[in-house]
């Protein structure tokens, strides 16, 4: 490894540790949240360094962007009195034992991890690629070789929305609008770009880094930005249309998984000649649903007709 790269990695690692520390021990919650968001961004950089651009994309959009927006929105609704002092007084009693335990655990884990041979399944994946129906190995694993895992993961995401909505009405009305007069104009300018990048990532998923998860995350980032700028879910979209958009990804996935049984009678066995188009269909449906699901998680509850004009 080049010395400059090593220096970069060392700095990256150090900043991550410092940010993690600040995230836990910041004087107030706002600083903690900002540290956490920066930690997410640096984690994305770390994924790039580990040559996993797909994960880096998702990490940047989810770990830094969406989670940060969620935390900030939560912060806006918390009453802040007395929290700063509480954070500090518990340090000796609470953090210290856990840190000691964490340090011991990490050391042990590091020793074990460094000794791992990490064989992986790269060769098996490469050998199966000609029959996978897509050119990107990541997409092949996610939507073909281990498509059943991915289907269940999308079920988990939909379930998260169902769970959240089961708790009661949405809390969007109390979402603080950012005091940024230029934001609505900027969002109007940027939103088409977000949409364009979403579709670009969906299309790219077939042969390079991209695909449903990063595309969905990007779409959600755009939608959340629009919500922060004061946009509201249009009334005609709430209710059945929104629910269908949320469910579309999982339903499409399930229909394809069961539908392809008409060919060979095997669950999820795409017919080779139709595999590319079927995978693309699933990817688009899943990507759009993921975008809407993440946005729904930000909304915090089922949107009812709320006041406020369109963006």
């Amino acid at each position: 490894m080049h010395p400059v790269e090593m220096l970069f990695d060392a700095l990256l690692l150090l900043s991550m540790v410092v940010l993690a520390w600040q995230g836990v021990h910041a004087r107030n919650l706002f600083r903690a949240v900002v540290s956490f968001m920066m930690f997410g961004l640096l984690t994305a950089v770390a994924w790039v360094r580990l040559e996993a651009p797909d994960i880096a994309l998702a990490e940047a959009a989810l770990g830094a962007g969406l989670t940060g927006a969620l935390l900030l929105a939560t912060l806006g609704r918390l009453d802040q009195g007395g929290r700063a002092t509480r954070l500090r007084t518990t340090f000796m009693r609470f953090s210290l034992p856990w840190m000691a335990l964490g340090l011991a655990g990490t050391t042990l884990l590091l020793a074990v991890t460094l000794a791992l041979p990490a064989p992986g399944l790269d060769e098996a994946v490469l050998r199966a690629m000609p029959a996978a129906g897509v050119d990107s190995p990541v997409t092949a694993v996610l939507l073909n070789f281990r498509a059943w895992d991915t289907l269940l993961e999308i079920a988990v995401m939909l379930l998260a929305v169902v769970a959240l909505w089961s708790l009661g009405q949405d809390v969007l009305a109390s979402t603080p609008r950012l005091p940024a007069p230029a934001l609505p104009a900027l969002v109007r300018l940027l939103f088409p770009l977000f949409l364009l990048s979403t579709f670009y990532l969906l299309w790219r998923g077939g042969h390079g880094p991209g695909g449903a998860f990063p595309a969905g995350a990007l779409l959600a980032a755009g939608l959340v930005l629009a919500l922060l700028a004061g946009a509201r879910v249009p009334e005609r979209m709430t209710g059945a249309p929104l629910r269908c958009a949320l469910a579309a990804g999982l339903l499409a996935f399930l229909m394809v998984a069961v539908g392809v049984m008409a060919d060979r009678g095997v669950f999820f066995a795409y017919p080779p000649q139709h595999a590319p188009i079927l995978i693309a269909m699933v990817e688009i449906a899943a990507g759009l649903s993921i975008g809407v699901m993440l946005t729904a998680l930000f909304l915090g509850g089922e949107p009812t007709d709320v006041e406020g004009g369109p963006s």
């Binding site: 169902v162 209710g239 059945a240 629910r243 949320l246 469910a247 999982l250 339903l251 069961v258 669950f267």
Partner: peptide, 20 residues
């Protein structure tokens, strides 16, 4: 039977949710 057991609950739950 296995396909029915694993997909039918998910599909029904999703349809119930989508239809409201």
């Amino acid at each position: 039977l296995v396909v029915i057991l694993v997909t039918l609950p998910l599909a029904t739950a999703t349809v119930l949710f989508a239809s409201g």
